[in-house]
């Protein structure tokens, strides 16, 4: 599942339409949460600020049972930080490679899935007039200021690994200039940059979602016992009255053999056939059969030095 997080509804609107999302009405949810029919995309709107981000991301990810294979994508407007005005343009999208704030250690999402956007540091501030006391945007890395990402990533990392956390920001203004005007930005301008940004983001999000699904399917296909052979494996273990530990040993052996070229299904069927032929009756016979026949290494050979 791709879980998108925005602070404000206007930042989410275009994605809600694009993915055909419907709001989930649940009184237990302290957050506006949307989902599509297939359950492949969800979106939450947390409200502004780090506290909202932490609470709402935690609640939504718990509700959605987020875990392995899911992606968390934060998107929203940000101001180009002082010093990055010459590097970033209004309307430009950046992807977070570092996220810092005055609270706690910086967070580093893993940029495993390639991006067509500039990498940048996102500095999460308390508000548009907040003073930043730490260094940012060093070594030519552009920096933008937002109000949620550090909190959102910290909360999401309780559920997902750093490779599954992605932060996109679209530059809505130059932060210093906005500060000098009292911290307010024009809502119409912001809506326009957000709308254009989504047009550029959908393709990348779809590609990353596809890549993540492929990787998950690779991991799944490396499962020890393929679906079709699970019943036969269960029967084999049952007939041999294997302990949990022995089942694991056998599973690992079948997995190793599969990785070395003997398909798991074929291997289990062969063992089951062998078991039916030998039909060990007593506990001792079963143990001997397990040791000498089931665990016999099909790859053992003679001694070519002699």
């Amino acid at each position: 599942m791709i879980i998108i997080h925005t602070a404000l509804y206007f930042e989410a609107e275009k994605a809600i339409k694009h993915y055909g999302l419907r709001e989930i009405k649940d009184v237990a949810l302290p957050v506006r949460l949307f989902k599509n029919g297939e359950g492949s995309v969800a979106l939450l709107v947390s409200g502004t600020g780090m506290t909202n981000a932490i609470i709402c991301v935690s609640s939504a990810l718990t509700y959605l049972r987020a875990g392995r294979g899911d992606l968390f994508i934060n998107f929203g407007i940000a101001g180009a930080a002082h010093g990055s005005e010459g590097i970033l343009k209004t309307g430009e999208i950046v992807r977070a490679i570092k996220c810092s704030s005055r609270n706690g250690r910086p967070f580093y999402p893993d940029v495993i899935y390639k991006s067509s956007f500039k990498l940048a540091e996102v500095v999460t501030v308390l508000g548009p007039l907040d003073e930043i006391s730490h260094k940012y945007g060093e070594n030519g890395l552009p920096a933008v200021l937002d109000m949620e990402l550090h909190g959102a990533f910290t909360a999401a990392n309780m559920f997902l690994g750093p490779e599954a956390l992605i932060g996109y920001k679209v530059v809505s203004d130059m932060a210093e200039e906005t500060r000098s005007k009292g911290g307010l930005i024009d809502r119409n301008d912001a809506e326009t940059v957000v709308s254009l940004a989504w047009d550029g983001l959908f393709e990348e999000i779809d590609r990353i979602g596809k890549e993540a699904a492929e990787r998950l399917s690779e991991e799944e296909s490396a499962k020890t016992i393929p679906d079709g052979a699970e019943e036969a494996f269960g029967e084999l273990c049952e007939r041999l009255r294997l302990t949990f530990a022995d089942r694991e040993i056998l599973k690992n052996r079948i997995r190793r053999d599969a990785l070395l070229g003997i398909p798991a299904g074929e291997n289990v069927e062969r063992l089951l056939k062998l078991l039916k032929e030998h039909a060990p009756k007593t506990r001792e016979e079963r143990e001997l059969f397990f040791k000498n026949e089931v665990m016999k290494d099909p790859f053992e050979g003679g001694d070519p030095v002699d």
Partner: peptide, 20 residues
């Protein structure tokens, strides 16, 4: 080039995917 405070902040993060 991303400037960091301490290498441990990156190397020992939670829930990392070693294979990826």
């Amino acid at each position: 080039v991303v400037t960091i405070d301490r290498w441990e902040d990156l190397f020992y993060r939670k829930k990392q995917n070693y294979a990826l």
